[in-house]
């Protein structure tokens, strides 16, 4: 009995391997796949980008897929390896991706992305009042960034910290953590796990509107100067696969998003043209902080 089931299971294995060998044929209709950096709530992202996929699919007349990833680096890697051809990047991740993929272009950004900013937030127990100038009270507190590769949760805040205090965060704070994303930063500062943190202002406002923030526990103490952030970036080799002028078609489609329901998901008031040069400042900052090779 035992022996028989043993042989039987071996037969199954042999059968499956031999059939699997020639099943690797699939239809070759081109599919446009895109991803986005996981900067907040995954559920939110899925909701948002499924709508984008549906919209693009209808407008461009090709199948459009969204694949979720777990980290900023994974989004860049997928873009680099041509697993995705289009991506919603942050400022830093976009610069990194375009450096790795020759010919790739920033094609669109949110209206607000030209004047983006980060909020420094603090737990109520540290008693730091909101200020216009850099809040010196955060020195020697425990501090958390968002993701290591985030523009609004890492790059720009670190830049402003260094500019104001002339020292690396590691030397200024008791502990420096990386919460992983903006929603987590808010959760952890609200729980007092970290005393101070820094977040993307858009995420702060959407969580505030959703009633997920208790202002008695955590509040904004400072906002950074403005900088350029998120953008859609597309690979340069799309025309051969989808036909001449496809990248331009994608750009037009993105700029034409007017559905308030969809825009609210981002949340952006609309999309405007972008180009690689818009991110030169981000690139320079990243290089100065050793987060990018020249």
């Amino acid at each position: 009995m035992l022996f028989r089931s043993f042989t039987f299971s071996w037969y199954c294995l042999i059968a499956i391997i031999s059939t699997g060998a020639h099943s690797a044929v699939d239809n070759k209709a081109p599919v446009l796949t895109f991803t986005a950096i996981p900067d907040q709530d995954q559920q939110q992202l899925k909701l948002r980008f499924q709508q984008v996929a549906d919209y693009l699919s209808a407008t461009l007349q090709v199948k459009v897929n969204y694949i979720p990833v777990k980290s900023y680096a994974a989004a860049i890697t997928a873009f680099r390896n041509n697993q995705v051809q289009l991506a919603w990047f942050g400022g830093l991740s976009g610069v990194r991706a375009r450096q790795l993929v020759r010919g790739s272009q920033a094609i669109a950004q949110g209206v607000e992305d030209t004047k983006f900013k980060s909020y420094f937030i603090a737990h109520h127990s540290v008693n730091i009042a909101p200020t216009k100038d850099f809040p010196l009270g955060i020195i020697n507190k425990t501090f958390t960034f968002g993701s290591k590769g985030s523009t609004s949760g890492r790059l720009m805040p670190e830049y402003y910290i260094r500019q104001a205090l002339k020292a690396a965060p590691k030397e200024l704070f008791k502990t420096v953590g990386f919460s992983g994303d903006h929603s987590l930063t808010i959760t952890q500062v609200a729980a007092g796990a970290y005393q101070v943190g820094v977040v993307n202002y858009k995420v702060w406002h959407s969580m505030l509107d959703a009633g997920k923030i208790d202002l008695k526990k955590v509040q904004v103490i400072w906002q950074t100067p403005e900088y350029t952030d998120y953008q859609w970036t597309i690979r340069g080799d799309l025309d051969s696969k989808f036909g001449v002028g496809f990248a331009a078609k994608v750009q037009r489609a993105l700029l034409a998003i007017k559905d308030p329901q969809l825009l609210k998901q981002f949340p952006r008031s609309g999309f405007i043209k972008a180009e690689n040069q818009d991110y030169a400042a981000i690139k320079k900052t990243a290089i100065s902080l050793d987060l990018l090779q020249p």
Partner: peptide, 19 residues
């Protein structure tokens, strides 16, 4: 362990052959 080949064949069958 004697059912392992069976499980393996099921495993190979169910896993997505993602591109």
């Amino acid at each position: 362990l004697y059912l392992l080949p069976l499980y393996l064949s099921i495993a190979i069958y169910v896993l997505p052959s993602s591109d």
